[in-house]
Design a protein around this nucleic acid. Structure first.
Lengths: 95, 95
DNA sequence: GCTCTTTACGGTCGTCGTAACTATA
DNA sequence: TATAGTTACGACGACCGTAAAGAGC
């Protein structure tokens, strides 16, 4: 399980179509579908039902969705809170 | 930023020494140190103060620590809640 | 027929472990 | 000197994009 895989799954689920999620993550269809397939293998269950054409979430996928969202929120929180200026920004010269 | 990097950082910080964290994650010193260094580059700041020998956390590292813990908790939650038996286990044949 | 998704293939990049090196206590 | 951590290096594996194929609507 990787953050990229969770990100791919999350946006595909949120946007409903992989074809829309792919450019949003700056990758091709193939890459996005592969990341989701790898996540499914890692989890051991199908996350999307491919029988319908705009692929729909399975029950497992619906269970994973909010958890994936939380992880991505935390990742963004790290990017925002940790990367920005530290607690003692007086005359500190970074690097 | 990857889950492996956060995991390396989290356990090194929690256990105090990289030399103890490394075998816990089933990797060598070199691999663990590299993952942490990569995370530092990704974050753009030092996480450990290498001037003291058992490396100590910087202020940025102390800020990252609880967030990393939350992400790893969520990862484990996914492993526990999502991987287990689905909602309709009647006569469904997986695969 | 058209759109959405998967698979095959080739190339590139990342990541790992071993081993040698540096530095602190 | 012994222990903690980093760097160099070679090899293996992962990942991406292009292109072609398969499957609903």
């Amino acid at each position: 399980m990787t953050l990229k895989q969770l990100e791919a799954f999350y946006w595909a689920a949120k946007l409903g179509r992989m074809s829309i999620a792919a450019p949003r993550l700056h990758v091709t269809y193939a890459t996005l579908a592969r990341r989701i397939a790898d996540l499914e293998e890692s989890v051991g269950a199908q996350l999307f039902d491919r029988s319908s054409k705009p692929a729909d979430l399975t029950s497992t996928g619906r269970r994973l969705f909010p958890l994936a969202g939380k992880i991505l929120d935390l990742k963004e929180q790290i990017s925002n809170e940790v990367v920005t200026v530290p607690a003692a920004p007086k005359y500190v010269e970074l690097r």
